[in-house]
Design a binder for these strands. Structure first.
Lengths: 173, 173
DNA sequence: CCTGAAACGGACTGATGAGTCCGCTTACGT
DNA sequence: ACGTAAGCGGACTCATCAGTCCGTTTCAGG
């Protein structure tokens, strides 16, 4: 990609903005047509930049996932592994639930974009908390994420903090 | 429905059997065509008995839900509300996870078939346990089901008992 | 048997959504 | 200003699936 023509760049931005908005509002199941309409372009234009719907979704959630990775990295700096884990969980949940639609996209994309990196960092945060005795150790670090995500996605509108609290309580050693 | 012709009755049974099997294997998203094929009938035949896909699904999960209602009724007899609730939760989970595909159907159908009845009975079991101080009371009885269901559905193949355990621990007062 | 109503099943419709194609338009270097 | 390659967008294909319709087959009672 040497250099985009001015109109191309403008449309690319419009598409990304619209996609972010629409995915945030309605989750991963919206059609490309809807996004194209919101962006004020033809859907051919969307597909030219993002060959598949998933490609577009990855682009949209990239920042989200990067931010979560940053939280994890930060948690690894703390010298109280237990506290670090619970703080991390709260921060990630806060970010995820600030735009539930986008979070569903993150879940939908699973390991693809920077998911692997996020998974790896989380695993470290969790394993460290387990080693410190702050977290029950009869489950794999890989089980913690799904449990929390499941609770968050099951929660009705304003209730997710309560649901998170229940699961985190259940996770304590 | 005065009396079904012999071939009609035979096909009806075939359809119900096939639908149970296929829904159990693949959850609520299978197509009617697939079920009809498994039953060895045309899909027109399926639609004649069950005007919509949901009608078929209701018919298939009816026993499932009835069984869960029975568990709830039984739990209400017990004179230890706390124990009754946790036993109920385990029994329901056991039944649900014995055929995860069907359980997804139950979730999909939500309140429709005897779901309302099940919801009402569960509510009583939960409220009783809360009154007895065995369950944290900062959540509504209606929140307990979703939390447990979410954990079960998030669990990988063999791990659901562990996930259930985490959530139930978090629910204790 | 034989006949009519019940049941059958597959062709058909209509909706939806991802991804392709190509004739027209427009930016931009010369 | 102008030629051209990059970009555009919508019509089109292809696949899937719920639900309808109707010509044909089969059951069952007389």
């Amino acid at each position: 990609m040497v250099e985009l023509r001015a109109d191309a760049r403008r449309n690319l931005e419009r598409v990304l903005d619209a996609a972010t908005e629409v995915f945030a509002a309605s989750g991963p199941d919206v059609s490309i047509d809807e996004i194209a309409r919101a962006a004020g372009v033809g859907h051919g234009t969307v597909f030219r930049r993002f060959p598949t719907k998933d490609d577009l979704m990855y682009a949209v959630i990239e920042r989200h996932v990067a931010q979560m990775c940053a939280f994890a990295a930060e948690a690894l700096e703390s010298d109280d592994p237990g506290e670090a884990f619970f703080g991390f969980a709260h921060r990630v949940a806060e970010l995820a639930m600030s735009t539930p639609g986008l979070h569903k996209c993150v879940v939908h994309c699973g390991e693809k974009p920077r998911g692997a990196e996020l998974g790896e960092l989380s695993r470290k945060v969790i394993a460290r908390a387990q080693r410190a005795g702050a977290l029950r150790s009869d489950l794999e670090p890989a089980d913690v994420g799904p449990l929390i995500r499941a609770a968050l996605m099951a929660a009705p509108a304003g209730q997710w903090r309560l649901y998170l609290d229940v699961v985190l309580d259940g996770l304590r050693a």
